[in-house]
Amino acid sequence: MKGYNFAYLDEQTKRMLRRTLLKAVAIPGHQIPFGAREMPLPYGWGTGGIQVTAAVLGRADTLKVIDQGADDTTNAVSIRRFFARTAGVATTTRTASATIIQTRHRIPETTLTEAQIIVYQVPQPEPLYQLEPSRTETRRMHALADYGAMHVRLYEQVARYGQIAISYDYPVMVNGRHLMAPSPIPAFDNPKMHRMRALQLFGAGREKRIYAVPPYTAVVSLDFEDHPFRASRAAHVCALCGDRASYLDEVVTDDRGGRMFICSDTDHCASRRESAP
């Protein structure tokens, strides 16, 4: 696109982002501050993710963007088209043929490979913010690995609901050292982060933080010995492809109580239907 640098951001900004990313990869799960730029979309729509994607995108890359698991929602379509126009890169909806996947709220069902990078859009990078409003204090807690307060939150969940009822943004311990917010992915997706082959990058634009999980890094969901972490999903079968193991969305179909459950990962669902006889 004329008048814009490759992938929208200027090279100095991308250089700054890459330095931040290197630091983030070097300290898995540790939040690194960066100078987030104004982007041509509102905060909360993926300004952090889009900057990280711009910094790692090359001419030979193939980009996939998903929002709530779907390739065809407004946010996904807009960001995909944004990079198609400003960088001229190939885009795809196929998880397997993408080299960079920018995501909001989901990790694809298809297992990612070493050749892929997954970029998460993060609204709130600080896992302790509900417990401790002061950022000075949370930084100190991270520095001293003083995470007892997080377990108090889990204790409260079990005391009140009989189980740990956090269904998304379920806190994880990365590399046995840093407590990390996995962004608002469902707890169902947490096990996929553990020793994932792909590089995982997290960008929070409004909060101006970047963090990362390098390939094959241990990512463990916090729990109690007698109340272990469980990845929960709706106890239904996908109405379109019949999958019994994928994460499902509940879709209301009329105003008389009609509803159906379908795969939240649209690419996963479509490829299952294609390959079915």
Binding site: G148, H151, V152, Y155, V158, D223, F224, E225, D226, H227
Partner: peptide, 10 residues
Amino acid sequence: RLMAAGARHY
């Protein structure tokens, strides 16, 4: 304080 000291059994 127990959890801060490492207790993980609810």
